[in-house]
Design a protein around this nucleic acid. Structure first.
Lengths: 235, 235
DNA sequence: AAAGGCTGGTTAAATCATGTTAATTTTTGT
DNA sequence: ACAAAAATTAACATGATTTAACCAGCCTTT
């Protein structure tokens, strides 16, 4: 993963600016939203590694955002920025919840430490970040780095980078569903109408390349995604 | 199973909010209802893995809800939230009944531990969660992963994902009834009028596919559900 | 057993998601 | 700046799922 991407939702223009710049300087990619609705919308479109939500927000407060996001995504860590006046028990709940909170006013340094700690913790168990380079399935061998798909008895096929990205994701999920939106957010960085159509085009291309081996197929799971199925083991 | 779904019934707005948010953040899907009637209605419409009922509730108290639910469903675990003043023996009864109770005030952490313990216990013996992929009945072979129904001497039939889901459920219950509402809640996530009509359409499609082998049939159990019957064993 | 209500069966139409191919735009390599 | 490759957009085709409309059968009531 190139660099971590943080979704920052803060309505105070001033604080928002400062946080944004600070995190950018520290090497994080950030997206700043001003209210809860915007924030949730951004989360659904793009892939983030961490969320930083002010609790008091116009349109939709930080906790409601978390609730909405957790319906689809159980893992992305969320840090809440809370005012001191907040009731202890509410806060306690979230503290234990694997997510974190930080009370205003806070030092940038403290925030950064927490962010780093959480990212370190979650990065360890994130299966998405796999560095597997070579995949074998059915009679195929796919070299992700070299972007080559080969099969005994046939010519090697050189893949484009988008083709490779998509095939790699499918391979990482062999015999289990790959969610459309997940794939779009990972490969295209953005789940939008046109990117989705683009992905369909690539699925068609991959199917064409795989058609010679019947034991390997990309099946569609209507309304949800795709699945690369194969009998043989994967290496 | 993607994630566990909890039905939470609590009339205290504040506590309800907190519990709801806490559980959501902990990765559970939740539905919050404010009174007993609402709660029972929700349970009949949607599928839940666990119930969390306040005992003192408007419209219908927690114990009455449990009684009503147990008429149709004997397994879904129920945890009661009781005030300290509650008589010990009342509580004892429910405790022995396989369900659990927790006395207010309680810590979120304790509640979570109990929830996890119960879900772990019940998940083990839940037949719904079966990972069987290939089913054979009559002269048919059905591959759920590949979404293919085949029969010696005939062309393979490619199923759509909804068709596969439904056929799989029927297979998991061969020669025993599959409840309409159960199937709807599992496949469509929601037992509603239109989904029920949709399911009937799919039953018709499946019957058409199975019609060549007389030894296999989907029979209707009026007012309750369907049953896939077959003489041969299932593999 | 006839009537009426309710549940399920069947088919077709409407809607929405995905598949396919080609045209267009963008990027890359030279 | 040009040609070639890659990626996106467009346009159209197909397919899956839901909704609708209507029919048939079961079950209850009388």
């Amino acid at each position: 993963m190139a660099s971590f991407k943080i979704l920052l939702v803060e309505d105070d223009l001033n604080l928002g600016q400062i946080l944004n710049e600070y995190l950018t300087v520290k090497g994080y990619e950030t997206k700043l939203c001003r209210d809860g609705d915007e924030g949730v919308k951004a989360f659904k479109r793009e892939a983030f590694d961490l969320c930083l939500f002010d609790v008091m927000l116009p349109k939709k407060d930080g906790f409601s955002m978390a609730k909405e996001i957790r319906r689809e995504d159980k893992v992305t860590p969320i840090i809440f920025l809370t005012a001191k006046s907040m009731k202890e028990d509410t806060i306690e709940g979230f503290k234990i919840g694997g997510d974190d909170y930080i009370t205003k006013p806070f030092s940038m340094e403290e925030l950064l430490l927490r962010i780093q700690a959480i990212l370190r913790r979650t990065a360890e168990k994130n299966p998405q970040i796999s560095d597997q380079k070579i995949f074998e399935f059915g009679s195929f061998k796919f070299d992700y780095d070299k972007q080559i798909l080969s099969r005994p008895g046939s010519e090697e096929v050189r893949l484009t980078s988008k083709e490779s990205e998509l095939l790699r994701l499918l391979c990482l999920h062999v015999n289990q569903p790959l969610d459309r939106s997940t794939a779009l957010k990972i490969i295209w960085r953005d789940d939008s109408y046109f990117n989705a159509r683009s992905m369909d085009v690539y699925i068609a291309k991959l199917r064409k390349m795989l058609k010679d081996d019947e034991s390997v197929q990309i099946i569609t799971i209507h309304g949800s995604g795709f699945k690369l199925i194969t009998e043989g083991q994967i290496a």
